[in-house]
Write a protein that binds this DNA or RNA. Structure first.
Lengths: 226, 226, 226, 226
DNA sequence: TATGAATGAGCATTCATTCAT
DNA sequence: GATGAATGAATGCTCATTCAT
């Protein structure tokens, strides 16, 4: 809904060619859209402010006036898209549902969101991992938030399963990292290969994560609730 | 002009300052080492040929003489490190062992290798994902090789489990991607957090992948063979 | 559209934030004040119109509306501050007093004024010397006026001393330049070093100028009249 | 002798148009010459690296390779020209001569040097006074060295004149500042007005400084020794 | 085999200045 | 009388790449 996949919104009238005089908030969103797209496709270093400004339909000075610097612009992209993604996942999950249901819902939302906003996903996933850049903290924070979310999910599920003692914390953290990594990888796979729908990707991962390869091989897949 | 018989101290003696006249193969390896290190730490765009040349202890023109261009140099890094990694994994796996043993051995080798060569791993994993760059093909090929390896492994295991019909090919491919992604993510986690040994990372992943979260929660973890 | 009778608090009341609707003369003085301060502290090139406008508490277009361009603004600063300085000096000097008294009074006024308005002095002295800039003429004119004043002073004194032939014009001009330069340098010194009061600076210069180093060394300083 | 007033040294042959492949030291001197000229004529901020590079007959990257940054380049100019000027003055003064002789010799050397290298003098005097710039320290150091030299001279003269107690230190420092300022001002005057030879400027200042205006008016000028 | 010298092209950033309201 | 929105044109600096030796 916000990452500029939708080219030009119809109805604003006429010629195209550099719309003039819009309120700051609108221009800022246009710039962020353009930036997400450019950063997503070229990477942070390779993206040029010229290209972003042009794609946003404004002059470069305006970009600087509103967003300060390339680094700040990128940080703003990260923040916006990370918030959008976590929001999408969070609002798809019912915290009172059983653990596998929660996971299933979250994964579906995740794959749907990443499929819908591939550039945003590229910014978060591929481009942002670069070490040494000053925004590394921002990116890691975003990822850490997701991992923490999953960690809590798994931990709660484990406790709910009456196990005592439950899994050690470090084990749980490791599992969360593994799960998130698997999801990231599958998201890339689903977007690259022609037509792997979000639901199928989610199902594959759910099978993998919940039943385990061992069960799958024995013909005991996990099956979607409800 | 001056035919240097022993003008400068031969061999490794002395202060270190810029060794002269060594065979091409050696020089090339020095350059690749420097390049992997620099690319791994800075990323492709941020790494400068100046820095690489200096770290390699040679002049820039020599780098160009031997390795042609920044792009070619990076491609060479990818190729070398991808080969090293796949070689490490492959040679740890006995194709006649049971599937879970094979997976276990492969994972251990993977985590050990990435822990041992973090810059190489960074080049393969983080830095190389950048789309749009001309070497994307090379990187994808390397990853595809690993995925194919895992795919074959899982496929064989499934067939060996007497299931009929076995899992559909696309499902298997998806599982392989998930597994590889989980491994990649865990490798980053193991290297970042203080002191998660390769073996533990491998065990965590093996548990996750083989037994599944469901089993784990019920207290039925996978246990290492032998 | 809305005819602002007393919509916003009139006069000086309230928080300070951007006073609306004041007479042009007042606004102009605010701008010049801000400009003198900024130019004095940053220099002509380094000062930005943004900073000046902000310091003046108005928007940039207003500055342009009233003062046309950066160059014109700077010229206006020069003119205002040069007039203030010469006025201060002139009005301190009684043209009927003896020459040394006139010089003494003028110097004191000069050092007092520059100590009181360091930014104005910086604009006149340091920042404005830049050759090549289009306002060089204005600055030189201001300085020339002071030199001419001193020249006249010295010339009159010489003639009054019954010397015949009096000092040649060029010699007098040179002396005036020397005296002005010495005063400028001492003004900088007095303002930089901690606590050299204007009066002391004036006395030092008066001694130097009137008695000469030779006399000083022989123990024959000039002593203030009255 | 070193500030590029002399356009192109004859004898290096032929076409002009970007001499190729010269040793680093030579190129560096060319760059400094060009920089002194440009900074002297335009000022620090207004001078562009492009212009300097072009005037030096090299490409901009080479300037950066050899001299690092605009700031460093300017600092190098200051250092070189300050050293040249102080050297010129120092080597003209015989420390065993009487004080007025020393002053006379020093002043002559000063006016000759500044007349010979007007751009260098502009860099030292006009352009460099800008406050807030990072090289202010360098410039002030250079000026402080000259002032210290003059201070020592005056102090020694005072002591040699058997006066007891001699002038207080602060008084001496003030006199030195006044003298240096007068010299600076006269240097500008001598260079601006058509044809005031160095010797005449020196004589004017010497009269002013040594005899004092009072003596001059009474017809008792200082007369050159020897 | 190996390098000091050199550059074309691009990039992030800033600034004085102007519309349209 | 006053301003939010917007830009053309520089400017400092870096980098991959190549000669000439």
């Amino acid at each position: 809904m916000k990452t500029g996949s939708t080219g030009s919104r119809a109805g604003e009238g006429g010629k195209r060619g550099r719309q003039k005089r819009m309120p700051r908030a609108v221009r800022e969103r246009q710039m962020l859209d353009a930036a997400v797209r450019t950063f997503g496709q070229r990477g942070y270093r390779a993206a040029s402010m010229d290209e972003i400004a042009e794609l946003a339909g404004v002059s470069k000075p305006l970009v600087y006036l509103y967003l300060n610097s390339k680094e700040d612009l990128f940080t703003a992209c990260i923040r916006r898209e990370a918030a959008a993604l976590t929001q999408a996942v969070r609002s798809a999950v019912n915290p009172d549902a059983p653990a596998d249901q929660q996971l299933w819902d979250g994964l579906r939302a995740f794959f749907e969101h990443t499929a819908l906003h591939p550039d945003a996903w590229a910014v978060l996933h591929s481009q942002a991992r670069t070490v040494g850049e000053p925004f590394a903290a921002e990116v890691n924070a975003a990822r850490a938030e997701i991992v923490a979310f999953v960690t809590a999910l798994i931990g709660a599920a484990a406790r709910a399963a009456h196990r005592d003692p439950s899994l050690p914390d470090r084990e749980v953290a490791g599992l969360a990292h593994a799960l998130v990594g698997a999801a990231e990888s599958l998201a890339g796979w689903a977007n690259t290969e022609p037509s792997v729908p979000a639901k199928e990707a989610a199902a594959t991962l759910m099978n993998f994560a919940w039943a385990g390869l061992g069960d799958l091989m024995e013909g005991r897949p996990w099956s979607p609730p409800a």
